[in-house]
Amino acid sequence: MSVIIGLAYLSVGMMLQTAILSRIPLINGTVDLILIVLIAWALQDGPEEWEVWVWTLVGAVLLGFVSKAPWPLYVISYAIIILLLRQVQKKMWKASVLLLFLGIALATLFQQSLFYGFYRFVYTVPLPLNESFLYIIVPSMVLNLLFAFPVYLVIKDTAEWLHPQEDV
């Protein structure tokens, strides 16, 4: 069930991202809705490990399908982010909203830097580091943080619906 819900959420998220949100940039940065959904899902207590990874794989492949960047780059970047986030989450008693914001900020920084490096050194596109950081990476991080909490609430409700927790 969670796989079907995940597929639906991520498909709708990708459509929103490509059709609407990518056209509303902050300077030149855009929000990465799929990244926020995946991080919010990974921070929930209910989903099992395999469910988190299926969502991650689906989200990465969906984005890689429409983007100029190759899909393995999305898979690798998302996988590293989710892996690190799950490791941190296991060491904490309960994931807090602070971890969500911290995770999204660091994940955006990591992912956009990875993409910058890929375009700069593999595709040899002339991308100035300073401008890339100021006009793309930082604004994207701000946008992701703005969208983080609303998306987190939706994913939290979904996780509680899919995996109801017994009250202690």
């Binding site: 490509t18 855009t30 100029k68």
Partner: peptide, 14 residues
């Protein structure tokens, strides 16, 4: 035009 590349580094449309 029905979409834009999600990567902000490149300007592509769908």
């Amino acid at each position: 035009v029905i979409g834009k590349d999600p990567s902000p580094f490149m300007n592509y449309v769908i």
